[in-house]
Computed example of a mutant assay.
Amino acid sequence: MSLFGRIFLLNALVLVVAAALLVFSPVTVSTPALLGEIVVVGAGLVAMLVANALLIRVGLAPLDRLTRAMTTIDLLKPGPRLTAKGHGEIAELITTFNAMIDRLEAERGFSSARALSAQEAERKRIAQELHDEVGQSLTVVLLELKRVADQSPRHMREELRQVQETTRSTLDEIRRIARRLRPGVLEELGLVSALKALTAEITTGLAVTRRFAKDLPELDAETELVVYRVAQEGLTNTVRHAAASTVDLSLQGHPDGVELRIKDDGRGIGDAQEGAGIRGMRERALLVGAELAITAPPRGTEVRLVVPSR
């Protein structure tokens, strides 16, 4: 029976009983009312209110759970669905809500996949242009500077050498940016080599410990790219925000596939809101059905990604 039907039936039952008592029993109400009559009417009223309150409280309890779920749900953190407890419209409402969340997660996953695919394509294009256009132009500039320096008077050569060094440093920085935009080593040498190259680029004095298990399960190209991007974002956050002195990066086998773990000894995340970087990590993890957890141990921050093997 629906919630409306149960409330209506209870109220009708109480009113019918009250009417029957007035019609078929010697119960009457005097004018002015006597104390005993007031007690009887008051007791009946209290009984009716208590019965209504209990019924409404029990009937609306599933709605309280639904309200809490609505205020706390995050499409980037999938969780168990609500159990469709209750009667009539209540159970139907919870079932509809679960179906809506399933649909929203599927649509968000599809949209995120398209957005990240376009992002990777754009990164690849920019990296290619940096390498082919800007990189080659700076290489030509370096050669011209060397030719001019060799033919210049002695007092100008030192200044030209400094310009050469500045140009060479700029060229190295552009190549580094291109490698971060498009990890060619990931395509050519695999995930472990790409992670080693990623940690080798850290030049801020941060002590990096690397641990890679042997005989890791084989991952497809899309999953390897997700692991690499999560590691890249995690290390970038450590370098920029953690004020850490050490960071440990490990890639180990897991009963469900492969586990990536990044742990530093920095200041931790505290109560800070998740930024675009972390939300991007969560979106990438959802694309390949991986589990991402970002926790704050007694000291520092730990990023843990478990990806299923194919």
Rank of each mutant, 00 (worst) to 15 (best):
T95W: 13
N11K: 08
V306I: 11
T301C: 07
V141F: 09
G135K: 09
V16C: 06
V140C: 11
G44N: 04
T167R: 14
D265T: 11
A99Y: 01
R108D: 03
P308K: 08
T167H: 08
S2G: 12
L34T: 12
A293E: 05
Q162S: 14
F24W: 15
R304I: 01
T31R: 02
T166D: 11
G280L: 10
D264T: 04
G44C: 07
L21N: 14
K196L: 00
L75P: 09
E165C: 05
T203I: 01
A213W: 03
G205M: 03
I7K: 06
V303S: 03
G205V: 01
E158H: 13
A113V: 05
I90L: 13
L10P: 06
G289S: 09
L66G: 03
V163M: 07
A51I: 00
H241P: 06
L143Y: 05
L15R: 01
S309Q: 13
V39S: 09
V17A: 06
P255M: 08
V27G: 08
L287W: 13
E274Y: 13
E224F: 05
S25W: 15
D215E: 10
A19N: 07
L305A: 06
Q136E: 03
R176C: 03
A149N: 06
R229C: 01
T170I: 06
G42R: 14
Q151K: 08
T139N: 10
Y228I: 00
V288E: 05
L235E: 01
K124S: 13
D248H: 15
L235G: 01
P153N: 05
L54Y: 12
E122T: 06
Q136T: 09
A47W: 09
A244T: 06
F110E: 15
L35I: 12
R176N: 11
T295S: 12
P26R: 15
E233F: 15
V58H: 13
R304L: 07
R6Y: 05
Q164K: 10
T95E: 13
G184I: 03
T28K: 09
I174K: 00
P308F: 13
S152V: 04
T236I: 00
R210H: 00
L186F: 04
R304C: 07
A118H: 14
R161A: 15
I90M: 14
R161W: 12
R125H: 02
R168H: 12
V16T: 10
S117F: 14
E291C: 04
L189K: 14
A296S: 11
I126V: 05
L286K: 14
V258M: 02
L15E: 05
L49S: 10
E291Y: 03
R179L: 01
A285T: 09
G268W: 09
P308D: 09
I294G: 07
A207Q: 10
I278K: 15
I202F: 00
K146C: 02
A18P: 01
R240D: 00
K196R: 14
S25E: 02
T295G: 05
T170L: 14
E120P: 09
E233V: 15
N237W: 05
S169Q: 10
T31N: 10
G135C: 06
V134K: 01
P183E: 01
L76D: 07
E159T: 03
S309W: 09
L249H: 08
